[in-house]
């Protein structure tokens, strides 16, 4: 089982992500949060395999949360999702230490393959 955490401030987007995770028998949702600080707490306490986190969020944004996960050397791999696409924002995600980047328009097709790839230790960047 791949243990997955979700962090996004839009309830309806989290619902869509949950529904996508349920397409796979290999994934288990371990926590769902609506800001970066809660996401960080979840990662510290539950150490999920993969954190899917929105780049723009209240309290602590996705980039800052990712940097903290890297700084304290937690094993969770981070997949950043973003409303906007492009190489500039994807590079920001990579610089923060994310192992993957997906635009929200691509989630329905690529969320599960992206989670599987970063879980295997690969990089998955789709600008």
């Amino acid at each position: 089982m791949i243990r997955v955490a979700l962090a996004d401030d839009h309830p309806e987007l989290r619902l869509a992500l949950r529904l996508l995770l349920r397409l796979s028998d290999e994934m288990e949702l371990v926590c769902e949060t609506s800001n970066g600080q809660e996401a960080l707490d979840c990662v510290i306490n539950l150490q999920p395999d993969v954190l899917v986190i929105d780049i723009q969020m209240p309290v602590l944004d996705g980039l800052a949360a990712t940097k903290q996960i890297i700084d304290v050397e937690l094993p969770t791999r981070v997949l950043i999702i973003s409303l906007t696409r492009g190489s500039f924002i994807a590079r920001k995600a990579a610089e923060a230490g994310a192992k993957g980047f997906l635009a929200k328009d691509d989630l329905a097709t690529y969320l599960l393959p992206a989670i599987e790839a970063v879980h295997r230790g690969e990089l998955f960047f789709m600008e």
Binding site: L15, L23, L107, A108
Partner: peptide, 13 residues
């Protein structure tokens, strides 16, 4: 009005 949810429903259907 939420494209991602339309996409998700399509995947299921």
């Amino acid at each position: 009005d939420f494209k991602l949810l339309r996409d998700v429903m399509r995947v299921y259907l």
